[in-house]
């Protein structure tokens, strides 16, 4: 982990879909989908390993997205780093602050939508999300690979099989 002043966006192992005002990034290694709002996407795209945080602030303002501070960019960088979207992890700037304090601090000083990244993980296996369609406990197979026991628990039955994760 480093306190990098010139963060670099990770490119490897990502599928990126840009859309007007937002971006979807799918991490094929962590199997997570990230939804970046316009501000977060702009900061991420500006992290080229050369731009400093100060440069990103200037580019942000030049793009007519609003007036922001370095804390605003760091708020995006903290999230990008914790979600694994930077080449090198960056030491968090807002460590110890509550989310409310952090947003207040950055929000008051900025005239732009705060950078937000929402994430969701894909399930281990699609089988985990499906039903084995057991209608009796005797119908449950003895070995079920890559599925969860609560499939049968949910059907009100005691699972009779061993699951292999």
């Amino acid at each position: 982990m480093a306190d990098l002043q010139t963060p670099k966006a990770r490119k490897r192992g990502l599928v990126v879909q840009e859309m007007p005002g937002e971006m979807l990034v799918y991490d094929t290694e962590a199997n997570k989908a990230h939804c970046l709002n316009d501000s977060a996407a702009f900061v991420w795209m500006s992290c080229d390993g050369v731009n400093t945080v100060g440069d990103i602030v200037r580019e942000f303002e030049k793009s007519s997205k609003g007036t922001v501070t370095e804390d605003f960019v760091w708020l995006a960088i903290d999230q990008l780093s914790s979600k694994g979207l930077l080449e090198t992890k960056v030491a968090p700037r807002f460590k110890g602050s509550t989310r409310r304090e952090m947003l207040k601090k950055v929000g008051i000083a900025s005239v732009a939508a705060l950078p937000i990244i929402a994430s969701l993980a894909a399930p281990q296996s699609a089988l985990a999300a499906t039903s084995c369609n057991c209608s009796r406990s005797s119908d449950c197979p003895q070995i079920v690979t890559n599925c969860s026991t609560n499939m049968c628990d949910n059907a009100g039955m005691t699972p009779t099989f061993t699951c292999i994760a």
Binding site: M19, E22, H34, C35, A118, L120, A121
Partner: peptide, 9 residues
Amino acid sequence: AEGMMTLTP
């Protein structure tokens, strides 16, 4: 993008 993310799982 929110829809795509929510559909992922």
